[in-house]
Amino acid sequence: MTDIQIERADGRASALAAGSARRLLAGIRFVAPVFGMLLVWELVVRAGLVDGRVLPPPSLIAARGFEMVFDTEHAVLLQHIGHSLYRAVAAFAIAVVVALPLGFWLGLNRTAYNWISPILSVLLPLPAVAWTPIFLVTLGHGDATIISVCFLGAVFPVLYSTIQGVRAIPPHTIWVVRSMGAPRHAIFTKVLVPASLPTVMTGFKLGLAHSWRTLVAAEMLAALSYGLGYMIFAARQYMDTQTMFVGIVLLAMLGFIFEHFLFGTVERATIRRWYAHHRKGG
């Protein structure tokens, strides 16, 4: 209520200022509990309430992380991150290339949909990691297996969302453009794509998140040298819990960055601009 009153009273410039102040406040509200958790964690371990060898304090985890970047020969931590990012993003990209056209086709073709959708509903809930041994015996250890498993993790959410996005477009929407004499490709680019975008974006988010989750397990089982999953798993041999936690924290941070910055930017440029004004209408 108050922001609206401020906006009306002081005009556009202060409305912008109020907007950035609001964003700052939202940022603080988000960061504060996370810092609080880290502080409690640190104190609990320092006070000796928890065994520091099992749960190292955040300060030591951070120190270990820096050490792995700056005091190793090839900045080994960055190598792990680089390999993991490459695999997750490659798997996601292949999933998009496969699922997007397939999703549009299934969304538009009723017969194909009736045949394929039961198969999809069986495969969708299946955890992709379950396929890892199959790929291990056919493709062996390494990137091919890991990317294949992550692909299976990413492809179904993207496919499912694309189909839903296309099917949810009201037929009258297509009638309106066909009445304008729109050629097929224009119906596709000017209507089907933008109309399904909100749902497709949700599919992308889910797809990358699934790819990222699947990656850790796949790397534990199939990686030979690098990757965050591999790093966490390899550290168990030395009881090196600090390194394990460096991996866990990085997985959380990178996942967060994907979700909020990568897709957030695209959403602000498109969907939120189109749909975010509902309150103004009478």
């Binding site: 009258h172 009638w175 309106v176 933008p194 109309a195 189109w274």
Partner: peptide
């Protein structure tokens, strides 16, 4: 054609 439910393109 004009439909009851407007059918505008929100983008």
């Amino acid at each position: 054609i004009v439909f009851q439910e407007f059918i505008l393109f929100p983008w």
